[in-house]
């Protein structure tokens, strides 16, 4: 006799949700840090460095994330480096996020008018101050809608982590569904959880976008 969907099952989904949130946070924070470095290198003005970063972005944007997760989890295991499933997917998602965020921010940095950098140079400000005080604050504002949009994709994308046996929300739903034979109910709850996580972010993102559009009209 299969168990019905009850509190223990719901609790199991909640733990899955916890892992989804945790994985998203780690990947997003790591991806932001590495992505900033990627964006800065991609716009540094040194041809060779820009080229290497371009290839880095191209490789991670141009191959399936699933494949990248396989490589980190199974590929590194072959070289003798056996990683915990969470660590493996966290690395995979972080590297992938760094390429996507790096490219988003590269565009934003280049969207800041050239005159801003020139004025800063004419005032004798060095590269670090030009970036920190002038370019990045403006670039981050420009990129905020796209960055939030990427975060929403990332939350939903973490379900791919199930492929290497990591039990996050989607995988937890699959397990509970198999036990209870109530797929509609279980996946309905799972879907609602994703929605509660993602919808406010999407809403915030589109509001930022509308605001920026308004500000650029003035």
């Amino acid at each position: 006799m299969a168990p019905h969907f009850g509190l223990p099952e719901f609790g199991f989904l909640l733990r899955g949700l916890q892992w989804t949130v945790l994985l998203t946070l780690v990947a997003f924070v790591g991806g932001c840090t590495a992505g900033l470095a990627v964006a800065l290198l991609r716009t540094c003005g040194h041809k060779g460095v820009e080229w290497i970063t371009r290839i880095y972005i191209g490789v991670f944007q141009g191959t399936p994330l699933l494949l990248q997760l396989f490589v980190v989890y199974y590929g590194l295991a072959l070289t003798g480096l056996k990683l915990d499933a969470f660590v493996a997917v966290a690395i995979g998602f972080t590297v992938n996020a760094s390429a996507f965020l790096g490219e988003i921010w590269r565009g934003a940095i280049q969207a800041v008018p050239r005159g801003q950098t020139e004025a800063a140079m004419a005032l004798g400000l060095h590269y670090s101050s030009r970036m920190r005080d002038i370019v990045l604050p403006q670039a981050i504002r420009i990129s905020l809608p796209a960055t939030i949009g990427y975060l929403v994709q990332l939350i939903k994308g973490t379900s791919l982590a199930a492929i290497v046996g990591f039990i996050e929300l989607a995988r937890a739903g699959q397990i509970v569904s198999n036990q209870t034979f109530q797929p509609l109910l279980v996946f309905g709850v799972v879907g609602a959880m994703y929605f509660i996580l993602c919808w406010p972010l999407s809403w915030w993102g589109s509001r930022m976008e509308a605001r920026l559009a308004l500000a650029s009209q003035r």
């Binding site: 005159g115 801003q116 020139e118 004025a119 002038i134 604050p137």
Partner: peptide, 11 residues
């Protein structure tokens, strides 16, 4: 230096 397009820092 003073520029044609001012180039003040808007933020």
């Amino acid at each position: 230096m003073v520029f044609q397009s001012f180039n003040l820092f808007p933020h």
